[in-house]
Design a protein around this nucleic acid. Sequence first.
DNA 1: TTGTATGCGTTATCAA
DNA 2: TTGATAACGCATACAA
Lengths: 343, 343
Amino acid sequence: MDRVDIKRLAEKLNLSTSTVSRAFRGNSDINPETKARILSMAKEFNYQPNHYASNLREKKSKTIAIIVPELANNFFSQAIHGIERVARDKGYHTLIYVTDDEYQKEVAFIDKLYNGRVDGIIMSASGEANDHQYLNRLGNKHIPLVFFDRVYDDINVPKVTTDDYESSFAATRHLIEVGCKKIAFLVVNKSLSIGNVRMQGYHDALKDAGIPYNTHLVIDCSNDYDENFDILSKALNEQHPDGILASVERLAISSYYVCHNLGIRIPDDIKIVSFSSLEIASLLNPALSTITQPAFDLGTNAAELLFRALESDAPVNDHLVLSSKLIPRTSSTGVKTHIGGKG
Amino acid sequence: MDRVDIKRLAEKLNLSTSTVSRAFRGNSDINPETKARILSMAKEFNYQPNHYASNLREKKSKTIAIIVPELANNFFSQAIHGIERVARDKGYHTLIYVTDDEYQKEVAFIDKLYNGRVDGIIMSASGEANDHQYLNRLGNKHIPLVFFDRVYDDINVPKVTTDDYESSFAATRHLIEVGCKKIAFLVVNKSLSIGNVRMQGYHDALKDAGIPYNTHLVIDCSNDYDENFDILSKALNEQHPDGILASVERLAISSYYVCHNLGIRIPDDIKIVSFSSLEIASLLNPALSTITQPAFDLGTNAAELLFRALESDAPVNDHLVLSSKLIPRTSSTGVKTHIGGKG
DNA sequence: TTGTATGCGTTATCAA
DNA sequence: TTGATAACGCATACAA
């Protein structure tokens, strides 16, 4: 009752191991009757082929890895959900690795995955946007890699992103249209792919509207809530912006806390728009205007690209760009939208 | 440059494969110099021992599985984060499986894991609270299992939960203290472990206060947002409760939407308290009173129990109970709390 | 300290 | 249609 393997089954059935093995593989020729006998016995003893032995033999792990900067984050948990859904449908297992936004951990994870541990990798990058030739070694090992959202531009692999530049441009223009003259841009790291592109959209929208670009209004934040609270308090006190474009959700949250704390009224004194996957943005006080990325779809698309690469010999190198949605709410419009519908 | 294995390294170094193998294992005797030579050559060729071959040989996968009902949920993503953190520190890999709250998927995942795919499993259950003897087969295979939050009472394995009964009791009493006379209890499935226990706390607190228990005030909801919107709209219209205790976060969110939609004012017309891991509960409109579970800690504790079981021969059977925190906010107190601090 | 030989559980090739 | 055998890459018992 302890360990059941193909050998034990074979003994019990007076068959060879090869015949038993055949019962579990779709293709090979085998007498339907003996196959049935084997399967029923397998069921009785709750036999499952040893995954590691199969992998070693077949050099396929039926496993993919997801590497993300963080987990407790609406965007990533939705994206992972999408990936997991596709992987499961394909009969694949999903390993998950969290870098805590530390580039070295990303490198360490990748290094460990060189050994055939996984058939493919889906990653949202933690490092800056350049110089990652080490990743090309994955290609040498024939382990496909797909990026989503946060990408390395110098790596030539399939990518799924959103129209960050356009969204950022549109959000900035929206803030200008509702009367903002001094719009701050909150960013975690300008060298990151998304930080960079989103800032460009902000920059160009200002230029387009004839508003001078002021570097003091680009606020460099961190990933730490406490630090951001201080950074933003200082920035709001010194610069007195009348609009905020937050390049990631967490910075909008911090802005809310800081404004509540300093008695700055949203949207009367300052209007806020943020990139955010928060499903309950409309329930915030005030309802937060968002640029909402299709996180789940990003995940499913990334997974599908990976499986295309896995299933075909031809190299897949698509760069898919999905559209985000700008949803103006009270925090920028001042209009108390009726929260109708079902959420 | 393609495939590097222990044999290739051995050839290049004029050594035997066993010597090369030894260089990567901590214990075995080996000349420090040759070890250094091997390691440097390994680094140059970017060699990583084949995980599947090692596993097959050692019958240890250095991998654990997490099975959860859903992913895009603050509670579970925080808990998973905790588990992943501990696993990574121990040098373990983490597989993730999402059941979408479907019991059959849970069974299917477990079945697949019988084959030695993982060394241990951490699970939050999707099924009802009884009759899961099939899980005991895992024990026969010496694959330890640890439950967190949603448990099966009839399975004798380590568990980590929160003080749900006490929290529910305290939250109900809180609602009574702020003047509620007709408190509705929102639950997804009374047969689930947590639904059951939380309802008991609610029930007993009413009894304790001399308020008659009314089955019409126990609202059976689903996992679907649209359905819940209809169920709750109907319930609020027919029963006119003046208080709500939501047993899971999602039901509080739906309640907010329904109240906004029906023009029911929170907290003037109805007061709300909810089990919730939402970090920005204080930014909602109105700020939501919560029973906040230590989700991350639940994860780390569950992982630590699993590793204890993995590392010792003695069976581990602890049931750890962590404390949740009742945080009254505007939605139940009516007091517009100053959102100070840093969030 | 190093090398030889064997087996982990599976599947593929070949022969029967 | 079935069986014997070798090999996947690694780690250990044992011999040298």
